[in-house]
Amino acid sequence: MRPSGWRGWFALALVVVLCSVFVFVASRPSEEPTRPPGPPRDAPRVIVAMGDSTISGEGAGDYEPGTDGEDGNWCHRSPHALINKTGMRAVDHAYNLACSGAPSAQVGLGDAEQYTEPSQAERLGKIAEKERVVAVVVAAGANDDPAFSHVLNSCVEAWTGRGQACSDIIGPEWGERVDRMVPKLTGALTDIRSVLHDAGYDNDDYQLVVQSYAAPISPNVADGLQDLSGCPFRSQDLRWVEDTAVPVLTAGVRQAANEVDARFLDLSRSAAGREACSQASDPDSEWFRRLAVQWNDLQHEDRATHALQESFHPNALGHAQFGRCLGEFLATADRAAACLPGDDGDLHAATSAGS
């Protein structure tokens, strides 16, 4: 039937216009950004370590090929690192992306490199797309404004008589250094959250754990070891490291963890009685390396500047203990815990002490 009169033609024109609008709207691409469907459910379950020397395995030895100075890479990742010692049976594989000396900028996204290696967060994203990341454990911040390893070097120099006690020089500004670190570490942790979100993960799909630093030395140096044979530090500097430097640094790391709603594992008191030079009769029972010199490296120009790199870092025994405590903590739902020695002499996650 043909439309009659102007009303019929008007109705026909209206139908054509409406159909055109419908086709146009229906064919427009969605303005909502599309996200991946989420972490692969049937893929291997993995945990990932990110950060600096305290989690890479520095001091534990047997470093992975390619991370012991080859082509300038001194990340010193070890199979004995704590991420490989959690004892978690529900995890298929542990990835270690940490690198000795890494600042927060290299842990997060961006162009910062550490010993030739690019962003750790960027590498995390590639893992998360193919495997199911169930936990990310981060130890970072000490290599930002606090420059903790350099502080320890300054303390050693003070012992030699080449300067004032490092506690006198650095102590007054230590709190400010840590305060400047907090937003940098927070930024790196935010980048980790962002990378996993872009890979389709919700925050509830994985655990983000930030761990603090253990005191590697204490005033309880065994007789005859407060020198170049073990721990060349002035007594006042030993007290400052244990009583002030590590607790203040711990508070800063905890603040950054809280900013991104991460879980927090306090290692500050974990090595009490097992610090470097604490066991004169049984040095193998200590959890930290003493002053360590790789004498062979001194003969090679490209390695000589790293001959002391392992000094005052957790040894393989220490990493095993820290890994044990981390595994216990990951198996709980507690927001925070502290690694403390139990009656059996091993470290355990004490949740009441971590809040």
Score class of each variant (00 low, 15 high):
316 A>Q: 00
2 R>A: 13
203 N>S: 15
264 F>E: 10
252 G>L: 05
327 G>R: 06
122 E>D: 13
139 A>P: 07
62 D>E: 11
204 D>R: 13
222 A>K: 03
118 P>G: 04
139 A>S: 15
184 K>H: 12
192 I>S: 05
61 G>Y: 00
341 P>D: 07
322 F>H: 00
244 T>G: 01
169 I>F: 12
195 V>C: 11
6 W>K: 13
177 R>C: 00
338 A>F: 07
271 A>H: 03
125 G>K: 07
3 P>R: 06
320 A>Q: 05
275 E>T: 09
174 W>I: 04
132 R>H: 11
301 E>M: 12
237 D>F: 04
180 R>F: 07
212 S>V: 05
14 L>S: 11
351 T>E: 14
118 P>M: 06
210 V>K: 02
215 A>I: 05
101 G>C: 06
118 P>Y: 05
64 E>Q: 09
52 D>P: 01
151 V>T: 04
301 E>L: 14
108 G>A: 11
81 A>T: 04
205 D>P: 02
323 G>Y: 07
51 G>P: 02
75 C>S: 15
283 P>E: 12
330 L>W: 06
307 A>C: 06
227 D>R: 04
307 A>R: 03
149 S>R: 03
51 G>D: 01
259 E>W: 11
49 A>S: 10
198 D>T: 12
178 V>E: 01
57 G>V: 00
41 R>F: 15
294 Q>H: 13
104 S>C: 08
197 H>P: 04
31 E>G: 14
149 S>L: 08
207 Q>C: 10
87 G>N: 06
240 W>Y: 05
174 W>L: 01
194 S>A: 15
269 R>K: 13
102 A>S: 15
178 V>H: 02
181 M>A: 02
166 C>F: 00
62 D>N: 07
151 V>G: 01
92 D>E: 12
272 A>K: 14
142 A>F: 06
142 A>N: 09
351 T>P: 08
299 Q>D: 14
70 E>A: 13
88 M>Y: 08
180 R>Y: 05
103 P>I: 04
15 V>E: 12
223 D>A: 14
174 W>T: 02
159 W>N: 01
338 A>R: 02
32 E>C: 10
259 E>K: 13
125 G>T: 07
254 R>P: 08
60 A>F: 00
85 K>R: 15
279 Q>V: 11
136 V>Q: 06
193 R>Q: 08
226 Q>N: 11
100 S>N: 08
196 L>N: 06
337 A>Q: 02
3 P>Y: 12
184 K>E: 14
300 H>I: 14
322 F>V: 01
53 S>Y: 03
294 Q>P: 02
66 G>Q: 09
101 G>S: 07
143 N>A: 04
177 R>N: 01
67 T>G: 02
148 F>A: 09
261 D>N: 11
62 D>W: 00
